[in-house]
């Protein structure tokens, strides 16, 4: 169902959710927008967070020896690119018992961007309005058009959407694509070449910092390391040399060019060949955070100019 929520009512709307659930939402600290648990609805800030909230399922650092009490949680304010990231990662993570438990306790309130960001290219992967979320909020005049698929988001603070609003929501992706032209990814999974000199060229620039992996809403790779009393699950990076190094020292990707090739081919080819979906949501954070400005859009354009 599609509703309208006046922005004046947004804090109370969130406060009502807080009575029953934990709300992990976007808020502002200085000029940064980050995800954190909200204490009240006024803390919420409608903006694109620095990082995706993927740490809710792949923690950046977690001691597996300590078991936390899982509670029903609402991820509030997640942008479409990050939400798509969750959906893409699910193709792999759904094999895990703990993931499924955590995921079943999560609800997503997705805020659709009202204007294109500098680095993003979400229209390439079907964004920004997705068709699968608990609730989707789209900025409209003095409030939000809200499409609800999950009953936890129902509220009597909302009124029914007008016909004009429904039309605006339905035509939104088309409108947005005019502002942000989608890149052509057709057959890129077949066109990408193992022996492309591009990988060597990129390796000359890359400083192997791993920022692209850590900022990516679809990078799910993690490592486990054990100490005396702790067993730490933490993000791992395929750009780092140790990623594939085995006991005894054998390493299938000892040079940087092979690791860059792995990153881009996993994203744009390998994952697609198994799941029919690219391992990229078009958020643009890898380019945004890259200190030497390696641009995944250039990789796509190389194969589909």
């Amino acid at each position: 169902m599609i509703y309208f929520l006046n922005e004046k009512n947004l804090p109370d709307y969130i406060n009502n959710l807080l009575k029953k659930y934990r709300v992990y939402g976007t808020k502002r600290i200085g000029n940064d927008v980050i995800f954190d648990y909200l204490d009240n609805g006024n803390e919420f800030y409608d903006g694109r967070s620095i990082l995706s909230p993927k740490n809710m399922i792949i923690p950046s650092w977690k001691n597996l020896n300590e078991h936390d009490n899982e509670k029903e949680t609402i991820i509030f304010g997640i942008r479409s690119c990050d939400l798509l990231g969750f959906q893409i990662m699910e193709s792999v993570l759904k094999l895990d018992i703990e993931y499924n438990m955590k995921r079943s306790l999560m609800h997503f309130a997705n805020f659709i961007c009202s204007e294109p960001c500098i680095y993003g290219f979400c229209t390439t992967f079907g964004g920004p309005k997705l068709n699968d979320s608990g609730a989707q909020f789209l900025r409209y005049r003095d409030g939000y058009i809200v499409e609800i698929r999950d009953n936890v988001f129902q509220s009597n603070l909302m009124t029914n959407a007008s016909e004009e609003m429904v039309k605006y929501l339905e035509g939104y992706n088309e409108h947005f694509s005019e502002l942000m032209a989608p890149l052509n990814t057709e057959d890129i999974e077949k066109k990408m070449s193992w022996n492309d000199d591009l990988w060597n060229e990129l390796a000359k620039k890359c400083i192997s910092c791993g920022a692209c992996n850590y900022s990516c809403p679809t990078c799910f790779c993690f490592d486990i390391n054990e100490g005396e009393n702790e067993r730490i699950m933490e993000w791992d990076s395929c750009i780092m040399e140790g990623f594939t190094r085995m006991a005894g020292g054998a390493n299938s990707r000892p040079d940087l060019s092979s690791r860059l090739r792995q990153r881009f081919m996993h994203k744009l080819s390998y994952h697609y060949l198994t799941y029919g979906i690219h391992l990229c949501s078009g958020c643009g954070r890898c380019y945004e955070t890259c200190p030497v400005k390696i641009d995944i859009r250039d990789v796509i354009r190389r194969y589909n100019p």
Binding site: L93, D96, C221, I224, C238, F243, Y270, L273
Partner: peptide, 9 residues
């Protein structure tokens, strides 16, 4: 799920 042993698809 941890991604380390990925080769091709």
């Amino acid at each position: 799920i941890c991604g380390h042993c990925n080769i091709g698809r």
